[in-house]
């Protein structure tokens, strides 16, 4: 399910231009992250895919098919959508929230609930939460339910609009790792919007850095962007200018571990070596990109 933006433009009736002439191909079965500060049109671009926003001109194509020609309701039921603050229906139980789309498309309720139970397992929620109402869950649990709901109709495309923006850093970290795991298992075409460059680098196979007006500042893999920021804007955005990404080896840790510090002298992480303190931790873990660097932001390993 490749998605293609062709010279897409969005002008709102009040004259503001959210996106001017945007073109991009999103490869299927991978994660593309739109990252940029607010007002960069990233949410607008995301919502054009399921026609929550219609482009003023240009086309959005899914596997070559113009979404403009697809009836919006049918289109949306085929595409998973996860938003900030979950957007769950407060008057429905967790299980009914997850089963929303299958029930809309005519799956018998009992069957939809049964499938939804399996989805709770998949997103790491205890089945005992099924009969709760969203208001009775923590923010992180609500987001998990949101993800389960997005996956319920087994869509090929999953749109995620800042899904982890409103949860605390520890829960966010957990949810990010869960998403990576899910993505490895399911291989959806994920389009993800965030303001957080670290999140973008962690989750994205392809990262699209946007400037105001939906102008692409740089497209590439996290490694490409970190290694060769195209201009000052990108360098500034990813924190390279502030020296956050330039790490030097300061001293050795336990064994042959190497301690990394950034340009302001702040310890950023460790490079583990055989016999070092991190060895048992890392070999036991299942970090998807199996980095040999561990640090507070989890991303500097790309540097």
């Amino acid at each position: 399910m490749a998605i293609e933006f062709r010279n897409v433009r969005k002008t709102y009736p009040d004259g503001t231009t959210a996106v001017e002439d945007f073109s991009l191909t999103i490869p299927s079965r991978s994660t593309t992250v739109f990252v940029g500060s607010s007002g960069c049109g990233n949410t607008t671009l995301l919502r054009m895919i399921n026609r929550m926003v219609d482009a003023t001109s240009g086309q959005v194509l899914i596997d070559g098919e113009d979404v403009g020609a697809i009836e919006p309701v049918a289109l949306r039921r085929r595409i998973g959508y996860v938003m900030q603050n979950s957007g769950l229906l407060p008057h429905r139980t967790v299980i009914d929230n997850v089963a929303t789309v299958p029930v809309l498309t005519g799956t018998p309720k009992a069957k939809a609930r049964e499938q939804s139970m399996a989805l709770l397992d998949r997103v790491g929620l205890d089945r005992s939460l099924a009969k709760r109402y969203p208001g009775q869950l923590s923010g992180g649990q609500q987001q998990r339910v949101g993800v389960a709901r997005g996956l319920a109709a087994d869509p090929n495309i999953l749109l995620m609009d800042e899904p982890f923006g409103a949860v605390d850093p520890i829960v966010r970290d957990e949810l990010q790792r869960e998403l990576l795991r899910l993505q490895r298992e399911l291989g959806k075409t994920v389009v993800f919007v965030t303001h957080d460059i670290d999140e973008a680098f962690l989750l994205g196979t392809q990262v699209v850095i946007l400037k105001r007006g939906g102008v692409v500042a740089q497209i590439g893999t996290p490694a490409e962007i970190l290694a060769r920021p195209k201009d000052d804007f990108v360098a500034d955005f990813i924190g390279a200018k502030r020296g956050k990404r330039r790490l030097t080896v300061e001293q050795q840790g336990d064994g042959d571990d190497l301690l990394l510090v950034d340009s302001s002298g702040y310890p950023a992480g460790l490079i583990s070596a055989p016999g070092g303190r991190l060895e048992p931790v890392l070999s036991g873990g299942s970090d998807p990109k199996s980095r040999s660097v561990s640090n507070k932001t989890d991303q500097a390993g790309d540097a």
Partner: peptide, 15 residues
């Protein structure tokens, strides 16, 4: 009714 709830419902494919 929370606008976000309605927006989400629409994005799910409610008519």
């Amino acid at each position: 009714v929370d606008r976000q709830t309605i927006d989400a419902a629409r994005a799910m494919g409610f008519t």
